[in-house]
Simulated scan of single mutants.
Amino acid sequence: MSSFRNAGLFLLLSFLWGTSFMAIKAGLEFMPPVLFAAFRYDLAAVGMLGYAAYATDYWRPRSQADWTVVGISAILIIAFYNTFLFVGQQGVTSGVAAILIAMNPILATGFSRLLLPSEQLGAVESVGLFVGFLGVGLVARPTSSGVLAADLLAPGFVLLAAVCVALGSVLIQRVDGGLPAEGMVAWSTAFGAILLHAMSLALPSESMADITVTTEAVVTLVYLAVFASAVGYVIYFDLLDRLGAIEINLVSYTVPIFAALSGWLVLSESVDVLSAVGFAMIFGGFVLLKRGALGEKVDWL
């Protein structure tokens, strides 16, 4: 019964995080990108702080290491990640954005080999890293005859988002604070929202006057804040305890499926064959990088 429950929660998490890419794309019609991200995490912070206070007694940062971890996460995983993702999604489909973000586990492995002395990159792992980047090249390839900066700008921003979250996760591991994940994510969300507002104010292209308040805009914002963020992270923490980090990382490779399907159904988007091949190569690179851990953790391997 437990395995069915875990599978159901895994699929639900994949659905919530996959459809969030479609919701971001839809919401960008009504709000400037960075301000949109800030509003999302304003609402999400309230729910996450409440959940953290309920779930654990140790939910507030107590040490310098705790505050360092919160700061890294707020800057890289919330503020920079969402700035690059929301800006980049103005120029790519929901499915392509999710595929590029799926590079996160591969990038995190690469950063860990560089920044964590105990980690080493072998020959097979190096091939996996290379295959993953080849997959990115297929997904983010220029669509015009010339390789122009403008042609690669949007997918480049989305890939930078994946770089930020991967680097942030490795730096957090390097600091090794004692704050539980629930508290870390909650406080990071709150401070990250403040940073996003500051970044939006600093951008001349963003203004409150550019917001169009409609039912669709409100529904999109609430869905992202409540379901994709707050509910999604509650499910994530539950599965992390039950499955472990390796198996839960596989969600990165089911999310693009739901992103592409929801983008097609709601926004009439499509993912071409080369992008699908690129996604398969990114997943293959992940398997090569994590083949040992996957063999131990995932029964069907």
Rank of each mutant, 00 (worst) to 15 (best):
S118P: 02
A190S: 10
P117L: 07
T212N: 15
R60A: 13
L152A: 03
V158K: 05
A245L: 10
G8E: 12
A260E: 07
V70A: 05
T56Q: 11
M281G: 03
F191N: 01
G183N: 01
A193D: 03
L121R: 10
Q120I: 07
D151I: 08
Q64K: 14
Y58G: 01
V170E: 00
L134P: 05
F157S: 00
K290M: 12
I24W: 00
G128T: 08
I248Y: 02
L301K: 05
F130A: 15
L76W: 05
M184T: 15
T189P: 02
A7H: 14
V255M: 13
L115E: 10
M281D: 00
I172H: 01
F80Q: 05
L196T: 06
L134Y: 08
A37M: 08
I172V: 14
P32G: 08
G122S: 09
R174H: 11
G263D: 07
V165K: 00
E216I: 10
V175F: 14
L76T: 04
F258Q: 02
F111P: 06
P142R: 10
S73L: 11
P117W: 09
V218W: 11
M281Q: 04
Y58I: 13
E29A: 14
W67I: 03
F258G: 05
V92Y: 04
V69G: 14
I282R: 00
T56A: 13
P256H: 07
W300D: 08
D238N: 13
V273I: 12
F130H: 02
T212Q: 14
V92E: 01
G71P: 09
S200N: 04
V124Y: 03
D210I: 01
L179W: 04
I77V: 14
L265E: 05
Y54S: 09
I106Q: 05
I172Y: 00
I99R: 00
G27Q: 05
V298G: 00
I24M: 07
L115M: 11
